[in-house]
Design a protein around this nucleic acid. Structure first.
Lengths: 209, 209
DNA sequence: TAGATTGTTAATCGATTAACAATC
DNA sequence: TAGATTGTTAATCGATTAACAATC
């Protein structure tokens, strides 16, 4: 994936959606599909699908279309879903616990190995394979365990501080669920899930129907 | 907001972010700000900010900039945040419960008044003001109570069925947290939060750093 | 008034769609 | 081979940035 650098983010963000629809086609035992058919299912133009896929390689065959399983697996590999990842969750409140419990992430290879919270009442609580550990021990944990992704699920006020702790002790990838933007060193990747922005967008749309 | 129809979605989706940053400025007692300053804080160009805001009205004053509180309140109104909304959550699993517990939504005026689940063990459970009700009673509940938004937090398999139940009984606005796209009548608005797509995008980015 | 900054038009850039030669 | 559909180039569309007259 050396050439991945000049691929647009809009195109990258569509990849998981392709992956999801291809999975569904596999479940329905569909073995081949054309860009036209896939487009009509997903609501894209055939042209866009071919452009998107050709950012990552030539997966199709002229006159035939795309082999569903082959394309699915190729996209999975491009997304890095052929590997396993160790994940920690910082903030063991309702949302943190829900994420730890959410089976789909584990099935996709993202394993939560620990949670962190500063609330003494929480410490020791176990959710699936992950135990809640005192936030003070975050750094020592990171030194002793390989961690691929840190999920920030604290309140907005604590977000920047825990982010600094985590990145300072080696975390390079963050999935941010707090209602704020966090500042990170430039070699750290952040993906934001700003639920409140999604809700407010919905609110706008329902008021301007 | 009669003219809201031809405003681009990318611009609409930035509104909640403006609102968030303006709130922060208010908290820091900043009373005025120029598009240039706001841009440097938010990582936008001044030009884009002025273009975005002028989609919705002329909120600024030449030679001065924007009054923070005025602009904040105006955007809040545009987003519909000056009203209260009654919300139900369908699916009272971990995620549904976490959303019901999530204080920020309530503070912004989105009140969860009931949850629905088909698991008998869940029924009667109370989270804040919302009780878990048998899914079979969804339609009768909707007939007897005004509901603005239904959050779908079931598993992907149940998503389409509960969506049909909800829209069939009058729901016009859906916030979809399931790992699938749902089909709705064309007068129904859906906002998707596809967590797995966000995670897979992050996975791609960390593998193509 | 002079300086600052908006609102808005024009220019540029990027993303999507259309077209078509290549080829299975 | 003929038909179908890709990969890719060209054309269009939309979003962002730049520029500047209007004006507080």
């Amino acid at each position: 994936m050396e050439k991945a650098n000049n691929i647009s983010m809009v195109s990258i963000r569509r990849l998981p959606k392709y992956y999801r629809y291809l999975e569904e086609l596999m479940d329905r035992d569909v073995s081949k599909i054309s860009s036209k058919e896939l487009g009509s299912i997903m609501g894209f133009t055939a042209s866009q699908i071919r452009q998107d896929l050709n950012n990552f390689g030539g997966f199709g065959q002229q006159g035939y279309g795309y082999n569903v399983k082959e394309l699915h697996d190729a996209i999975g590999k491009i997304l890095g879903l052929d590997k396993e990842y160790k994940v920690i969750i910082i903030g063991a409140g309702n949302l943190g616990q829900a994420l730890a419990n959410y089976n789909n992430f584990g099935k996709a290879g993202f394993k939560c190995i620990a949670m962190f919270d500063k609330n003494p009442k929480m410490i020791g609580l176990k959710i699936r394979d992950a135990e809640v550990i005192d936030s003070d021990r975050l750094c020592s944990f990171l030194r002793e365990n390989h961690v691929d992704i840190a999920i920030i699920a604290t309140n907005a006020e604590a977000a920047q501080e825990v982010t600094q702790n985590a990145t300072g002790c080696g975390v390079k990838t963050i999935w941010n669920f707090t209602n704020t933007d966090i500042e990170v060193p430039e070699d750290v990747i952040v993906e934001n899930v700003h639920l409140i922005e999604s809700l407010f967008t919905l609110s706008f749309l329902m008021n301007n129907r």
